[in-house]
Amino acid sequence: MNNIANDIIEVKDLKVYFDMSRGFLEEILAKEKRQVKAVDGIDLNIKKGEIVSLVGESGSGKTTIGKAILHLVEKTGGNIFFKGEEIDPKNNKEMRLFRQKAQMIFQDPYQSLNPRDIIIDIISEPLEVNKLVKTEAEKRERVVRALEWAGLKPAEDYLYRYPHELSGGQRQRVAIAGALVLEPEFIVADEPVSMLDVSIRADILRLMLNQCRQKGTSYLFITHDLSLAWLISDRIATVYLGKIVEIGDARLMVGKSVHPYTKALVSVMPVPKVRKDRKMTILEGETPNPINIPSGCRFHPRCPNVMGKCRESEPELIEIEPGHFAACHLCSPHNINKKGPRS
């Protein structure tokens, strides 16, 4: 049982491993199955009405975390609590109820809408599947309401159109309306604006924020755009190779971060300003392959501040100040006493 009543989602030591396909010879020789450790032990909680962002490079496991929390991919280990209860993904009845309460918004509005359905059918599908509406009139009313929440007004104009008749921004609003129609309490938004023009991003984000404030909907916002994470999140978690390496409030993005990885990401964040004196920490290479996770601290091969200890032991997430955790040997209490946390 969960003792903090207002947590919508609580994740404990979540692990998602994918099996690699083996070659014929490996199969015969019964070699050990190799696994991709996409998510490798994550603790996270999201409160009612809170927006938590996951930031990191592609391949860091951000999307897999989101999908695992919604039971869209099978977890390998750990516990996921929804409002204090652990859901059994094999129990259809429980899952059906959970699906009504937790929804996902996908990145690409060009691929997430069925091109052969009209908007009213796309949005009403979850209502019909869950037998939540009895009459046509009721169905129509709920779809209209969802479209209006998503900012498509007048909603009647959109009901009988096909996705291809809409612009990218309108499609993403339809996708959002589809997620909102069941009035969920928790939404995973996976890069919801990265395919959209800057000029309409703000509208979509404002929509999410309003939902959050008015209805107390909680969000897990997955993005690689740090400035957007800063803009809308209550808390931000930096993910590297399937682990959270730092988590804290939005000020992480404006100089409060202590983990070298978060610091490097922040240092290269593009901003519409000319800064000649800007010092960028450009990390070499790309996120390593999660099949062979480096020993010790998984960030050590790319870390500008690497020490001997980092190669041997894996740092744990420790609280640096209230609500701000980082997993780095540089910030361990031992080092803090010696030279302060932010050297």
Binding site: S199, R201, A202, D203, L209, S227, W230, I232, V271, K273
Partner: peptide, 13 residues
């Protein structure tokens, strides 16, 4: 674009 040097307020579309 969000201005991370300024106040944390929603950008205008």
């Amino acid at each position: 674009f969000p201005n991370i040097f300024g106040k944390r307020e929603m950008t205008a579309s």
